[in-house]
Simulated scan of single mutants.
Amino acid sequence: MIYPIVAYGDPVLKEVAEDIPQDYPNLKELVDDMFATMYHAHGVGLAAPQIGKSIRLFVIDSEPMMDEKDEGKGLKKAFINPEIVDEDGEEWGFEEGCLSIPGVREVVYRPERIVIRYFDEEWNEHEDTYDGMNARVIQHEYDHIEGILFTDYLNGLRKRLIKNKLAKISKGEVDADYKMNFPALTKRR
């Protein structure tokens, strides 16, 4: 199933998501659907709040973000009830975008390395270290389950410069090549 992507302005994107219980119904199917939705929208990550579900789950496939020297070092994985336990290294800037905020890209600075604890779809617990682009994609998606958007990192001037674009997105005045739910046009289910 391909889900519509929740657009900027929907309150679900600003909520801290809830932990998922082990008996969560159809979790593996949901993970598969999230990967399908992400690929359909040409994304490299998708968090459950972006499909209207305020639960601590995100999926990533960072391979398209890798350059030639890093080819084959991408990461395809689901993260259930993740917790970033450490971030370190020099902060580096990279232009980020978001499926919930189409047409807006801004430079965001993030630490180069993370340690994250999470469960996989089989409920096996992991604690892994990631760096570079893999860390960045994970940090971006992790922010979604914490109610943080990449635009929250921008300084006051940058926020003012994109304010009208964000307002238009929330009203559905945006071109996206995937189905979206807009807060000003639809009520949340």
Rank of each mutant, 00 (worst) to 15 (best):
Y8L: 09
A17T: 01
L99S: 03
K69E: 15
Y8C: 03
E141A: 07
S170Y: 00
A41F: 02
T186V: 14
T129Q: 14
E18P: 00
A167P: 05
L157D: 11
V16L: 04
A41S: 12
A47H: 01
D23F: 02
E95P: 11
I5C: 11
N164I: 13
G97M: 09
G103K: 08
D131Q: 13
V12P: 04
E18C: 01
F58N: 08
V6H: 03
W123Y: 07
E90V: 12
N81F: 00
E90R: 07
K179P: 06
T186G: 07
E15Y: 00
I162F: 03
A78W: 02
D128Q: 13
D86N: 11
K77H: 07
L13Y: 02
M180F: 09
C98R: 02
G93L: 07
I51M: 01
D67A: 12
I2A: 05
D19G: 01
T37Y: 00
D88E: 09
P49N: 13
F35T: 00
E127Q: 15
Y39W: 12
F119H: 14
V174Q: 05
P183R: 04
L161N: 13
D33K: 04
R189E: 14
I162G: 07
S54T: 12
P64W: 01
D23T: 06
D61R: 02
D32L: 04
M34C: 05
Q139F: 05
I116A: 05
D19V: 04
M38I: 10
L161P: 11
E121K: 08
K77Q: 15
P21W: 00
I101H: 01
W123A: 05
C98M: 06
E15G: 01
F79V: 03
N81Y: 00
D67G: 14
V115G: 08
R188M: 11
I101Q: 02
D33S: 13
G172I: 01
A176V: 04
V12I: 14
I20V: 08
E127G: 10
G132F: 11
E127Y: 03
E122C: 08
I114N: 05
G147T: 13
Q139V: 11
E122I: 10
K159D: 09
A47W: 00
T37G: 00
N81P: 00
E106T: 10
Y118I: 10
M34A: 06
L75G: 07
D175G: 10
H126A: 10
I5S: 06
G9S: 05
F94T: 10
M34L: 15
G74W: 07
N155W: 08
D10T: 04
G89T: 07
I169G: 08
K165P: 11
G103V: 06
V107H: 07
S62T: 15
A48E: 05
G172F: 02
E68V: 12
L154D: 07
V115E: 15
P183L: 09
I51L: 03
N155Q: 09
V44C: 04
Y142T: 08
N81S: 06
D143K: 11
